[in-house]
Write a protein that binds this DNA or RNA. Structure first.
Lengths: 235, 235
DNA sequence: AGTTTCGGTCAGTTGGTCTGACCAGAGTTC
DNA sequence: GAACTCTGGTCAGACCAACTGACCGAAACT
């Protein structure tokens, strides 16, 4: 039998990782102000000294900077190291292959198990996509939408697995780079618009309780988005 | 934006959890001797005092006991608390629904992407199922077999997700109870025999590089095993 | 200009973890 | 049965992580 050597994760390391994730996903956008040390120590339920140590780490990584007596997310984030075996295109292919394997059946199950209450909730979320959204706002709502649909499958094991896929989709700074690098604003708007259209088709299949239509809608949505991500950018 | 309060996991808590998992999965079988504190401190790469504290916890839970100057896994393990919302039957249904969603496409992808080297490796593992196996030996080899096939899909994201499904399948003491409770030994042998047959069909589809045959083989295998688990036991 | 908020620093305390040692008793070997 | 080995039990001392509480200078705000 084998034992895994015990790992030690310090409090400040955990804080740093959580903040790092929020920076790379855009939840803490470049140029935004980082909450104060006192506020973060309350939110994380730790001592201020632990928060300080974590922020020192982010400072040394160049992800945040001090201007005056405030802490800010760096305007220009340094490249965050990615797995050396995985180019961007390979990563996107694998991520979407994984989504097809899991999202199509999970969403189809959810459609077949929808009821009036869950349908109402989905309609409400879809309505929030209307109007102008920043990329960050869109991505937050995007995840909320996918999570809500998936939870309708009623199987906590599948929901947990799917949440890990969403973690991959929504935490990678690489994804944001793919979406925005060298793209003009109108191209980003177009990607968001296409995604929102796909969500409406998915929501309709969900509310119709139609697993077959749902499977088709998700397949089409995933193909559209994957193509958008890999489409060459303007020179 | 929301922050997750930081959690602290002590060294002894991590040790206790790992040992607990090994007890519930049968890797540390009832009645078996627990490795000594000094040996465990070497394996876990921690101080002996941390191992002591962990084992004290298992003692107070009744999972291990002291006889003489040795520590033993309890012969009769107390019920390990399970999620109160999930009866055994519901859990099994959800677990197998999850397996169908993930295992069928992942194994089919793997079959389509097999090569001479990976086929040889699969054949070698299948051969090890021959001969008499204890339930514990069977389960260890079972997991190794499934992991090997899944890794053939070539997508690390899918492999990681599938490993979490296997974690659920192989760590639950509840599964062992399902397999052995009130069953006579010949019934357990029969379940193992049927599972090994299913593995051979799966291995043949893999080595033939046939995704369609693989999908059928996995569906049949999962149905057979799920039925075996839920079949009423001898009165 | 006055007030508030922020980052920086510090002393003292607590709990976790470690190293190294020693002992009594159980288990093994001869 | 004696000798040896191995195990769990206990202990002292040290170090580290994390915390509490306080205070200060400077930036930001009113």
């Amino acid at each position: 039998m084998t034992f895994q050597p015990i790992t030690r994760s310090t409090v400040s390391a955990q804080i740093r990782e959580q903040l790092l994730r929020m920076i790379t996903t855009g939840e803490l956008a470049p140029g935004a102000r980082v909450p104060s040390e006192r506020e973060l120590s309350e939110q994380f339920e730790v001592a201020r000294t632990s928060v300080r140590e974590a922020i020192q780490g982010l400072l040394s990584m160049g992800l945040v900077e001090r201007r005056g007596n405030r802490t800010w997310v760096a305007e220009h984030l340094p490249d965050v190291a990615v797995d050396s075996d995985s180019s961007t295109e390979v990563f996107v292919h694998q991520l979407f292959e994984t989504r097809r394997v899991l999202e199509v059946p999970v969403f189809a199950l959810a459609a077949g198990r929808s009821d009036d209450g869950s349908r109402e909730a989905v309609r409400a979320v879809v309505q929030r996509f209307e109007g102008a959204l920043t990329l960050c706002e869109f991505r937050q709502l995007d995840r909320e939408f996918h999570t809500l649909i998936a939870s309708g499958c009623g199987n906590p094991l599948l929901v947990e697995l799917y949440s890990k896929v969403l973690d991959q989709l929504f935490r990678s700074w690489e994804i944001d780079s793919i979406l925005t690098e060298q793209r003009e604003q109108h191209e980003v708007d177009e990607i968001i618009r296409a995604a929102v259209e796909g969500h409406e088709v998915i929501a309709n299949a969900y509310c119709a309780g139609d697993p077959g239509a749902m499977a088709s809608a998700v397949e089409a949505h995933l193909t559209e988005i994957e193509d958008s991500m890999l489409r060459p950018t303007t020179p």
